[in-house]
């Protein structure tokens, strides 16, 4: 009886901890998305928007994790300098991709759905976004490493990281880390 109550108590504690953690992740996401949407609403044009949201996104997205996952197992072949360069370049691409979805002067209507906890320290928050007359199902994947950070965005079933992974895989097979960095530089340098 005593062991049963101990088990129940530890379960409740763990569940409570997870719930508190999930609430924290949800709160973090809502704050981040609202902040970015407000910046987008007041922006003059797309370039200004990308520049304005960059500082915010640097704090809410874990670009190092995103880059590591997008590159895949080949990441361990990168030197520290290459890792840093790849992360910086990939961050620029992600910020551009994400900010290009917003039109200056238009505020999306976001409905948050119950969070899903696929594993400890990970949360997926599904949302429905009504923007410019169209509805989109967007899932924000977050992880709690040092603090909660967004590690992937899945729009209508299409994962940002998975899409880049297929592209980086072929680049890596052709020429390893230098080929990946070269491809990133080329993509960043392409005029918008």
């Amino acid at each position: 009886m005593r062991s049963l109550s101990l088990i129940l108590a530890s379960f409740a504690l763990a569940h409570g901890h997870l719930s508190a953690s999930t609430l924290e992740a949800e709160k973090f996401l809502k704050k981040a998305v609202t902040e970015v949407a407000q910046i987008a609403d007041h922006s003059q044009n797309s370039s200004a928007l990308a520049a304005s949201v960059r500082p915010v996104l640097m704090n809410v997205i874990s670009f190092e994790l995103m880059t590591r996952r997008a590159v895949g197992p080949g990441w361990r072949e990168f030197t520290e300098a290459q890792k840093k360069e790849a992360t910086d370049l990939f961050a620029t691409l992600i910020i551009r991709t994400y900010s290009s979805k917003f039109t200056p002067g238009e505020f999306p209507e976001i409905t948050y759905k119950p969070a899903i906890v696929p594993a400890p320290g990970r949360v997926e928050i599904p949302t429905r976004i009504l923007y410019r007359g169209s509805q989109y199902e967007v899932i924000y994947r977050q992880e709690d490493s040092v603090a909660w950070r967004i590690t992937d965005v899945v729009i209508e079933g299409v994962s940002l990281i998975a899409t880049y992974r297929t592209q980086f895989d072929s680049q890596f097979k052709q020429g390893g880390a230098p080929a990946v960095i070269s491809a990133l530089k080329k993509s960043v340098a392409t005029p918008q």
């Binding site: 691409l93 551009r96 991709t97 290009s100 209508e156 079933g157 299409v158 994962s159 998975a162 899409t163 880049y164 297929t166 592209q167 980086f168 072929s170 680049q171 491809a183 990133l184 080329k186 993509s187 918008q192």
Partner: peptide, 18 residues
């Protein structure tokens, strides 16, 4: 495609996932 490394692969991957 705008910020893709390889636009063809990006579209193919996006379509497959979708």
């Amino acid at each position: 495609t705008k910020n893709a490394i390889d636009p063809y692969q990006a579209v193919r991957s996006g379509y497959s996932q979708y």
